[in-house]
Design a protein around this nucleic acid. Sequence first.
DNA 1: TTGTAAGCGTTATCAG
DNA 2: CTGATAACGCTTACAA
Lengths: 329, 329
Amino acid sequence: MSLSIKDVAKLAGVSVATVSRVMNKKVFVKEETTKKVLDAIEKTGYKPNAIARSLKVKNTKSIGIIIPDISSHFFPDVVRGIEDIANEYSYNIILCNTDLNREKEKEYFDVLVEKQVDGIVYMSNTITDEIADKMASVGIEILLISTDYKELSSITIDNVKAAEDAVKYIISKGVRDIALIGGEMTDPNAGLPRFNGYVKALSEAGISINKDYILEGNYKYESGYEGAKKLLSLKQRPRAIFAASDEMAIGVIRAGLESGYRIPDELMVVGFDDIDMSRMVYPSLTTISQPLYEMGCEGMKLLAKKLHGEKVEQFKIVLEHKLIIRESC
Amino acid sequence: MSLSIKDVAKLAGVSVATVSRVMNKKVFVKEETTKKVLDAIEKTGYKPNAIARSLKVKNTKSIGIIIPDISSHFFPDVVRGIEDIANEYSYNIILCNTDLNREKEKEYFDVLVEKQVDGIVYMSNTITDEIADKMASVGIEILLISTDYKELSSITIDNVKAAEDAVKYIISKGVRDIALIGGEMTDPNAGLPRFNGYVKALSEAGISINKDYILEGNYKYESGYEGAKKLLSLKQRPRAIFAASDEMAIGVIRAGLESGYRIPDELMVVGFDDIDMSRMVYPSLTTISQPLYEMGCEGMKLLAKKLHGEKVEQFKIVLEHKLIIRESC
DNA sequence: TTGTAAGCGTTATCAG
DNA sequence: CTGATAACGCTTACAA
C-alpha cells in the first residue's frame, strides 16, 4: 500500500538518509543525487509519513483550538483567523467544542496533550487555577483569546471601554433613558466589564442608574427578545437599549418592531460584536466591532512566535474595538 | 520533561509491555500488577504519546475536514455535527479552509495524507476526476457532504425537490409572478438543481418561464440585495422571490423593505438553508431547511462505520429537507 | 500472566 | 557528500 522512504531509497539507489536529506534540504546533497531522488519520489508518488517524522523531531505542526461551540456566531471568524495564520506557518488546527463543559474541556485537553500538539488556543470557559496548573504541568504553549489569566499569553479587547463607548454614543444622541441587557455578571470576561462600562458612561454623564433598566441575558437571541419585551412594558420605557451581544440586540430589534416602535426614532438599539449578521438585518445594527478575525490572526501569530522561540515583548495584546454606526442608532 | 512508558514501567517494577497492556486492556493482566501500574501512572501523571502509538498501530484517530470557509453560514453547523459524532467515536477533527481554491485544496489534501488521517470529510469544490483519482490512490476513506461523485460515499439532500417544494408553496399562495435568484448554473451541487426545481414547479403549474425573472447570484447577501433591486425595478415586478440561499433571501428582504414593499403582503420571499439567522430577521424568513447538523452527524457516522470495517448497506444518503414557514411568505 | 525484542518510518549522529 | 545505524515511544508476536 503506502510506500516508505526505503522504497524511494532503493529505487533511487541511495540510502534512506540521503532521501531524507533531499526532502528536508538542510544539508547539501550533490545535484545529481538530488535529481535521482526527486525522480524516484515523483515516480512512486511517495508522501512522507508525518507521524513518523513527528515522533523523531518532537513536534507535530498541529495546534489545538478549544472553544465552546463553533456554531456560535462569535467563533467561526476567529477560528478562520487562526487557521489562516496557522496555515502560513504550516500548522494544522484540531478543533474541539466543549459546550463550556468542564469535563469535556479536560478530556479534550488530555487528548491534545497526548496527540502532542505544539500549542493550544483556548477560548472556552474562564480559566481556573486547576486548569492553569494542568496547562503549566505539560510543556505546551498556551494562548488565550477573549479571556485572561496571570502570566499566560492572551488576546483581548478592552470590554469596559468598548461598552462605555457604545453608551456614550447613545448619550451623544441626546438620549438618557438607556437600558442594558448584559451578559452574566458572573462572567468576568465579558458580562462584568460591559456592565461596568455601561455604569461608567452613565455616571460620567451624570445619569443615575435605574435598576429596572438593567437586565441579565445569556448573549442569545431569545434573551434579548425577552429582555426587550420586559423593558418595553415598563411604565417608563427606555428610549435606547444597549445589548451586550449582537444576537441579543437583534432580538431587541424584533421585540421593538413587533411592539410597533420605529427604530431608531422611537427606540435606539446598539449591539456588541459586529457579527456578520448585524449588517444584514433591517434596520442594520449599530454595534461595537470586535476584530474577530484579527483576534484569531494576532493570537496565532503570537503563538507561532513563541513556538519558534522568538522573544516576544508583548504577550498580552489588547486589540482595538470600533464603534460601527449603522441604522439602529 | 515529558516521561515515557519506560519511566512508568520502571517505577511500577514491570516491563513496558505490561504497562502497555494495562493501558489498552486487551490482554488480561493480574489485578495486583494492574494496580501497581495504575499507581505509577497516577503518581507520574504519565500521558501516553499518541504519535508513537499511531506509528505502530497505523491509525491516528484523526479525520480531516475540507471546507471552503468556516465563516460561511453554512458550515459551522455541519462541522459541529461531524465533531460531535467524531468525538463519540474518539476521533479528532483537523479543519481545513480552502476558499474553494484548487491549489489550497490540493495542499491540504496532501498534508492530511501525510499526517495519516483515518478519513476525510470533503465539502469543498465539486469533485473533478483528477481529485477523485488522487483520493483513490491514497488508501484514505472519503466522505462527501453536499456533493456527490461516482462510487464515493455521500450525504446530500434532494435539491431539485426542495426548490420545487419551495416554489410550489409560493404558488399555493396564489402567486404566479415568481422570480428566482439562484446559484451559479455551473454549480452542479446546488445552483443547477435548484434552478431545475424552480422550473419544474412552474411548469407543472402551467406557468410560463419569464427569463427576466431568473437571476444568477453567488449565495451571498449582496448578490441577493442587488438581484432584488433589479427585479423590483422591472416594469412588471415579481410578487415573490425565491432565493437559493438564506443570505441572499435576507438581502432580498432588505431590498424589498427599502423600496417600501410590505413583506409578505406585497412581496413574498423564500430562502434556502435555514441558517440560524433566518429565524432572527424581521420579518423572519420562510425557507427550506437543510438538516445541517444532521448532515454532519450522519456523514461522520457513515465514515466511522466504514473505518471500523462495518458493512454499510447505504453509502449514498439523501436526507430530508423541510419547508419552514415563517413570516416572509 | 509477563518479559524480550522486533519493528513502525523518520531524522540525526558519526564515520568514511 | 553519503551510508550505517541508533534512536523516537509505543505495540505485539513470541517465548518463558
